[in-house]
Amino acid sequence: MDLLSLTWDYLTTADSWTAPGGILERLVEQLLLTVTALVVACALALPAALWLGHLGRGGFLAINVSNVGRAVPTFALLALLVTAPWPGVSSFGPYGRAGLATLIALVLFALPPLITNAYTAVREVPADVREAADGMGMSGWQRFRRVELPLALPLVLSGVRLALVQIWATATIAALVAGPGMGRIVVDGFARDLYSQGVGAALVVALAALVLEVTAALVQRWADPVPREARTGG
């Protein structure tokens, strides 16, 4: 395959990594976008969803938000945000062109998995454990803080993992509407018939996604209060 060898050439040329607007610069930009969006989305979604789970209210909303989120094309929402008078395509600090519009879209699409998983995680704490905590004389806050939260942590983290995958994918798509990040290089490559550049950058995006996912999986395993071996053994 000719295109494959051209792609290899593109990826092994130092210039395609270090030039202004090259892979390294865009990769850092996209990582910055992803981390910011994940932190903001967690700060918005987790406290409310966890507490609703503790109270046992708002389950309908928490479950359905995922279904709605899935039906809205990320591309269409990004396009609307960029075309609207605000936040538009203007440059946003280190996040680059259309950075603010992209950040808003990324946060919105990260909310459904975070809300659904956090809510379900607290709800699924076994009833007898809950009752035992009440029987020990714990207050509602103590039960939430010392019993429900630690037991819910693995499922909450798997929601964070899903959100991370979603954010990374959406951040790549942002380039289709003049946004920042690695997708910029892919889209430019396709727009200017530099297919080797498009395919090469896509490969970097895919590998970065896998690295992020594996890292998140390791963090999740490390944070599990009941290790897998103990659970299957008992």
Binding site: A169, A171, V186, G198, A202, A206, L210
Partner: peptide
């Protein structure tokens, strides 16, 4: 299948273009 799911759509399509 998890690995495929992790790859962004805008990266998966270009990766198929050579084929």
């Amino acid at each position: 299948s998890t690995a495929v799911y992790t790859i962004p759509s805008l990266a998966l399509l270009p990766l198929l273009v050579p084929f």
